[in-house]
Amino acid sequence: MQHLFTPAGEVALAATLLRRPLLAFDFDGTLAPIVARPDDARISQAVSARLKSLAAQLPVAIVTGRAVADVRGRLGFEPRFIVGSHGAEDGLDASAAAARAGALNPVRDLLRTRGADLAAAGVGIEDKGQSIALHYRLAREQARAPMLILEVLAQPGLSVQVFAGKMVVNVMAPDAPDKADAVHALVARCGAASAIFAGDDVNDEPVFVSAPPDWLTVRIGRDHPASRARYFLDSPAEMAMLLERMLVLLARIDAS
Rank of each mutant, 00 (worst) to 15 (best):
V162D: 09
E141N: 13
L153F: 07
V171E: 09
V169C: 06
P212I: 03
G165K: 11
Y136K: 03
L186H: 00
V169I: 15
D214T: 03
H135I: 11
P236F: 02
G221C: 04
L243T: 06
Q142R: 14
V218E: 04
V160S: 05
A180E: 06
H224S: 03
V160P: 06
A185T: 11
M147D: 10
D223Q: 13
L216T: 05
D234Y: 01
P225G: 01
M239F: 05
E151S: 08
S210H: 13
H135Y: 08
P213R: 13
S194Y: 03
V152M: 08
L233M: 12
M172H: 06
A143E: 15
V187G: 08
G129H: 08
Q155M: 11
L138M: 13
S194M: 11
D201G: 02
A176I: 14
R219I: 12
E151C: 00
A211D: 03
S159A: 07
A133M: 09
V183L: 14
V187A: 12
P212V: 04
K179I: 11
G221Y: 01
L216C: 03
A237M: 05
E205Q: 05
A193L: 12
A226L: 15
V218S: 04
L158V: 04
R137C: 06
N170W: 08
S131I: 09
E238M: 06
F163V: 13
T217D: 03
L186P: 06
S227V: 12
N203R: 02
F232E: 13
G129P: 11
R219W: 07
G191Q: 07
M167Y: 12
A188E: 15
P212E: 08
V183I: 12
A182V: 10
V183R: 01
E244H: 14
F232C: 14
D204I: 04
I149P: 01
A185H: 09
A226T: 14
M172D: 00
A229Y: 09
M172W: 09
R189A: 15
A229S: 13
G129R: 06
D200M: 04
P225Y: 05
L134P: 01
A164M: 12
R230D: 12
V209D: 14
H224G: 05
E205M: 01
Q161H: 14
G165Y: 12
F197S: 07
A133G: 15
Q161E: 14
M241G: 13
V183G: 04
R222S: 15
R219E: 08
S235W: 05
A198Q: 11
A192P: 04
K179Q: 10
A180R: 05
R189I: 08
L216D: 01
A211Y: 02
S227N: 10
Q161T: 13
S194D: 06
D234V: 11
L134H: 05
E205V: 01
V207S: 00
A226Q: 14
I149C: 01
A143H: 06
S227H: 07
L138W: 00
L158P: 00
N170Y: 10
F163L: 14
A211M: 02
L138V: 09
I149K: 00
L186C: 01
A133C: 14
R228T: 12
A240F: 02
A133D: 09
I220R: 03
F197V: 10
K166R: 15
G129E: 07
V160Q: 04
F208V: 02
T217Y: 02
I196P: 07
G165T: 12
G157Y: 04
S235V: 08
E238W: 04
M167F: 10
A164V: 10
L138I: 10
V152N: 01
